[in-house]
Amino acid sequence: MTDSNADAARADAQRFRETYESIRAEVSRRMVGQTDVIEGVLTALLAGGHVLLEGVPGLGKTMLVSSLGEALKLSFSRIQFTPDMMPADVRGTSVLVESEGGGHELQFEQGPIVANLVLADEINRATPKTQSALLEAMQERQLTIGRRTIKLEEPFCVMATQNPVEQEGTYPLPEAQLDRFLFKLVVGYPEEGDYREILRRTTGEQEVELSSVSNAETINAMRSTVRQVPVPEHAEDYAIRLVMGTQPGSAYAPELVNRYVSLGSSPRGAQALLLGAKVKALLAGRFAVATEDIAAVARPVLRHRVLLGFEGLSEGVTTDQVVDEVLAKLPVPEEAAG
C-alpha cells in the first residue's frame, strides 16, 4: 500500500476512460445512435467477453462490428453462417498440398476463427454442430483440431449476430453456447432524430473512413486494468444473490421466477456481472465496484442465461421482465442483513 500504487491506479483508470471514449467516438462516426449497443459491445470487449447482438435486419449490427475492427486495428474476420457450413469451415482443416519434391503432404489451413475480432454473422443459421465449433475457442481461447492445439491471440472476441424473426430454418443457440456470451445486446430501431443522419451518411457520395485509435496491446492493457478493480463484499453478495434470484426455488427467487422460469443463470452469470460492473465502475470514475454497477449490467448479462418455461412463454413473459423483477425484489445486502 503506497501512494504511488494509488497514483498508478488512478492513472490507469484515467487512461482507460480516455481510450474508451476515443474508441466510442470513432465508432460513432459511422454508427448513428445505438449508444447503448456501442457501449455494451465495448464493455464486453474490454471485460474480455463475447457479445451476442440480436436485432432485425438493417439495424447496423454487422456494420458496428466491422467498424469496431477498423477502429481498433485488430485482425478481423467475418464468418457468414449458413446451414451447410461445417465445423472445419470455422476452425480450419488439413488439406493435401503438393510438396516441392513432387510428393503430397497434409498441411493445416486455419479457419476464419483465428483472428482478434470474429464476426459470426447470423450464427443461428448454422447447425448446432457448427455452432459448437466455437465453444472451445470462446471459453478456452484455443482450438484443438486432431493433435494440433492453437492458442488464439489476445484480444479474442466473438461478436455474433442473430435475427429474432424469420426463425424458419434456423437453429436456436444451445444453452452451453449462450452461456459463453458475456452480453446479449438487443439492437432496437434508431430514434427519429437519428434517421436523418443515417440517410445523409449512407446515401451520399462520401463514405466515412475510420482511423484506428487503438490496437491489440492497448486493449490487453485495458483488460488488465479492469481485472484490477476490487469488488467489495457487499457487491459480491449482491451479484451472487442476483444470480440466485434467477434460479427457481432459491431463497432469493421472486414469485415470477418460481412460476415462469425453468432454468436460471449459472455461476458464469455472476462472473459476467462482476466483469461488466468493473468496466462500469471505471467509466463512472470509481475505483471499486458498487451495487449500482452490477444492476446496470444485469439485463445484458442475465437475459440470455434465463430459460423460460412453457408457462412463461405462453404468458408472453420476457427474460427482461424476469431480470427486472429480480432486481426490484432483491434487497441490497446491507438492508437484508439489517
Binding site: 503506497t2 500504487n5 494509488a6 476490487p230 457487499h234
Partner: peptide, 17 residues
C-alpha cells in the same frame, strides 16, 4: 466500500484509491 477497505491491512492501488 472505504469502510471495508480500511479494515484491510495491505491494500492494492485501486483499494487505496
Amino acid at each position: 466500500t472505504a469502510d471495508e477497505f480500511l479494515r484491510h491491512g495491505a491494500r492494492t492501488g485501486f483499494q487505496q484509491a
